[in-house]
Each structure stands twice: as C-alpha cells, then as structure tokens.
C-alpha cells in the first residue's frame, strides 16, 4: 500500500477462529499491527487502558452484545473506537451498534478496501482522542500548580468578571487580583483570555461555580 498505516493496534474479536485468522492476515498484509481474539474475556485481559487501538467486533458473539462490551470498556476507562461487523445489517441492529459507540458498521462479507479504510479512520480517531487525552493531562498538571487563591481568581476570570468585581467579591484590592491573574496565566501557559477560557472548558473548571 502506498500510505503507511497510522500507529496503533487493531484488535479483532470474533468467535470464529477462521474469521479471526483471515482478517488478521488481511490487516497484517497491509502492515497493521493486529491482535486477534475469539473470546471477550481474553480480549479484555489483553487490552490495556490508554492503549492506542481500535476494535473490529463481530456483533453476533454468543457471549455478549456490543452495548454491553462498550459499557464494560468505558467502565475500564477504555474508549476505543469500535468497528462492527455483522452478517445481516438490519436497522435495529445498526441502531444498537451506533448506540454502543460504533465508529463504523460493516456487513459481512466485508470488502478488504472498505475494512482498511474503516480501520484507518478508526485508528485516526483513536489517535485524535489519544492526543486530546494527552493535552488535557498536560493542562490538568498545570492547573494543579495553581495556589487556591489563583484557582479562585481563575474561576472568576473565566466566568467573565472584571478585575474590579473580582476584588470586591474576594474582599481584596484590584492590584492583587491583577498580580494573581498574571501568575495564573503564566502557570497555565496561556497568552490570552480566550486561551484561558478554552483550557478551563477542557478541564471543566468554572462550570460548577455557575450552577
């Protein structure tokens, strides 16, 4: 293939070993990193949280339905993209699959090119999510360096209040607020108020104050 596959592991989960074998071959031939499983338990044991991966899942597994697996994955903090494979794509089943967090829904027999496209897209999504998760982690680390006073000020700032108003609320001088504000902007590594608001949104800071 012309383009190299995005990084990440493709998990295959189908109760039929022959199917797992065939799909593994197809994906490996296209330079994907593949791990195949025929039982949910083996898959859950092998799959690590935070792993950069996607899952190709046969809907008709005797042990569970997709929704249940999705819940179990979320419970373990693993929000990996899932591509559903089904023998017969009827509407209730696709609805169920989408609800279960499918990024794609393919019917068997699945065409190789289609599967590769779907897997590539799913890994891309995983990558994006991974990146996002990594960004938030960095921001959270920064947030943790703020003093309680600075955090307090930050909550007021992102709520859109003026320095004067904040000083009055907190019972201090406007100069003090300005100083705290400069410090926290520096600690949070943001250049503008807009950046600070975006960071606060991603971290979920300030929303509780409004409620």
């Amino acid at each position: 293939m012309a383009n190299d596959p995005p990084p990440g592991t493709v998990f295959l989960l189908d109760d039929e070993p022959e199917m797992v074998k065939a799909l593994t071959r197809l994906l490996r031939a296209n330079q994907f990193e593949v791990r195949g499983f025929t039982s949910v338990r083996a898959f859950l044991e092998a799959c690590q949280p935070q792993e950069l991966a996607c899952l190709v899942l046969d809907v008709a597994m005797p042990e569970l339905d997709g929704l249940e697996l999705q819940q179990r994955l979320t419970h373990r903090g693993m929000a990996i993209p899932i591509i559903f494979l089904t023998g017969h794509g009827d509407i209730p089943m696709s609805v169920r699959a989408i609800k279960a967090g499918a990024t794609d829904f393919l019917t068997k027999p699945v065409d190789g090119a289609e599967l590769l496209r779907a897997v590539r897209a799913a890994l891309q999504t995983a990558h994006t999510r991974h990146e996002a998760r990594a960004g938030i982690a960095a921001l959270a680390a920064r947030l943790a360096t703020l003093t309680p006073r600075e955090r307090e000020v930050m909550e007021h700032v992102v709520a859109g209040r003026l320095n004067k108003q904040i000083a009055a609320d907190l019972g201090t001088g406007e100069q003090n607020i300005k100083l705290h504000r400069a410090h926290l902007m520096q600690k949070m590594a943001v250049a503008s108020l807009a950046d600070l608001v975006r960071a606060a949104e991603r971290l979920g800071v300030g929303r509780s104050g409004e409620r």
């Binding site: 022959e18 199917m19 071959r25 197809l26 023998g87 190789g112």
Partner: peptide, 28 residues
C-alpha cells in the same frame, strides 16, 4: 433467513478476506 445469511456470510467473509490478503501479499 437473517441467521442463515449470517451463517453463509461467515465462510464467504473468510474466503474474501483470505483472498484479499493473498492478493496483497502477492503484490508486494
């Protein structure tokens, strides 16, 4: 019929994926 379609699609899927894997391997 739904289940039968699945039952049939399973081996057909295995054949297709295997064949396409082989094609890919031969093209390298």
């Amino acid at each position: 019929s739904g289940s039968l379609a699945h039952e049939l699609n399973q081996p057909l899927g295995i054949i297709l994926s295997n064949a396409q894997a082989a094609q890919e391997l031969l093209q390298q």
